[in-house]
Each structure stands twice: as structure tokens, then as C-alpha cells.
Computed example of a mutant assay.
Amino acid sequence: MKKLIFPLLLCAITLQLTSCKKETKKEEQKEAKVEKKQAPFSLKNADNKVNWTAYKTTEKIPVKGQFKKVNITAGGEGNSAKEALNNAEFSIPVSSIFTSDSGRDFKIKKFFFGIMDKTELLSGKLVLENDSIGYSDITMNNVTKKLPFTYTLDGKKFSLNATMKVSNWEARKALDSLNTICKDLHKGADGVSKTWDEVAINIVSVFK
């Protein structure tokens, strides 16, 4: 009898342990499914373009470029586009700068951003104040300043426009450095070499 009881107990324990493992696995699968579920609007999945326009010579000739990469570091999800955008935090690697001129890209990285303090990344947070204006707390050159912007939101398309005054981020030294290395290229018909302090910013995000 004792010989019969022991195998039965062993089977019962084994069945119990197997059952527990199955339950644990089901719970883990449920949690995984919950984690994978995304909000209807996600900036991480949107088509994000960060465009900028700088200016050279006294005639204020535009020099256009963009950053090819933007990372959403916090927030960026919601049940509406506005909810996803508001309070979203981001970072932009300066190494992703692109102007269709590799020589110019190199100079901007080395003689402009490279002169700044701790500026491998530009970082910020979007705050929408109402249906047309907002601001972003931009960190550049180890300085954080508020950058006001206007914006439009048409269905799934968000478009932001701002003018950034570089000297507000204590980056006059970096601007002078870039103007020195580009002295002849930034010289206009009047013979004066000039790199403007302002940069126009345009960000477009199209939600999928």
C-alpha cells in the first residue's frame, strides 16, 4: 500500500507544479499582450522631419538643412494627436545633420556644435498652450531656454514653426567659430562675411 501511495503523491505534486507553470506562463503572455498595445497616436511611429534654415551674408541668403534622426524619450502617445504631442520629450543627435553638402555638414558638426558644451544631443520638451501656440524647453550648449512656436494641426499632420536666436543659448563663440572657418563662403557682394544669429525651425510630424 505504501508503495502505491508514494507514486500517487509524486504524480499529484508533478501535476500541481505543471499547472502552476502553465498559469504563470498564461499570466506572462497576458502581460506581454498588454505591454504591446499602443495608443492610437504615437510620435515614435510618426513620420517626423526636423528642418532648419540658417542665413549667411548681409543679403541673408538661406542655407537649408535637416536633422535626419529624432528620438522620443518620454511621452509621445495619446488618444489624439494633440495629447500625443503635448509634454512629449525628445532628443536629436547633432551627428544626424544633413544639408546635401558633406563638407558643410562636417564644418557645422566640428566648428559649431563641436565648440559648444555637452552638445552631442539637442533635447527638449513640447508644450502646447492652446490650439495655435506653444513652447519648447530646448537644451543646447548646456543651457536650457524656452523657444516659443506657432503650430497647426490638420488631422494627422502637425507642423511647427519657430525662430531660434542662437545667442540666447550663449553660443556666440560657436557662431563666430563657424563664421571664421566659412569666412569666404559667407562673404556677400559687399565683401562682408556674416553668419546670422537666427535659425528658422520647421518640424513636421505625420501620424500613421
Rank of each mutant, 00 (worst) to 15 (best):
I108L: 01
N79W: 13
K64R: 07
T58V: 13
V50C: 09
K60I: 12
D101L: 04
S80I: 00
K110N: 08
Q29R: 05
F41D: 00
Q38V: 13
I61P: 03
A74F: 10
S91T: 08
N87W: 08
K30R: 03
V70W: 08
Q29M: 07
T53V: 15
V70T: 12
D105P: 08
Q38P: 09
N71E: 12
K64P: 02
S95H: 10
I72C: 03
K33H: 01
D47E: 13
A84L: 00
S80E: 00
M116S: 03
Q38M: 06
T57C: 15
I72V: 14
K37L: 09
V34F: 13
V70F: 13
S95E: 15
N87H: 05
A81R: 01
W52H: 10
I92L: 07
E35V: 08
N79Y: 14
V50Y: 15
L85Y: 06
E59F: 14
A32V: 02
T53M: 15
I115K: 15
F67K: 00
E35S: 11
Q66F: 14
K36W: 14
K64H: 12
N51M: 15
I115N: 01
S100C: 04
E89Q: 12
Q66L: 12
E77W: 12
I97Y: 07
A88N: 00
D105E: 11
I97W: 09
S102R: 03
D105S: 08
Y55L: 11
L43W: 12
V63I: 14
N79E: 04
K56A: 11
A54D: 01
N71V: 05
V50G: 14
S95W: 10
F106G: 06
N86E: 04
L85Q: 09
K64Y: 10
N86A: 00
L85M: 15
F112L: 02
T58A: 06
R104F: 15
S102Y: 12
A74W: 07
K68R: 15
W52E: 05
K68Y: 14
K107G: 03
E35Y: 03
S80N: 01
I92A: 05
S42H: 07
K44F: 08
V34Q: 07
E31T: 07
K109Y: 11
K44Q: 12
A88Y: 06
G75R: 03
I108K: 04
G103D: 08
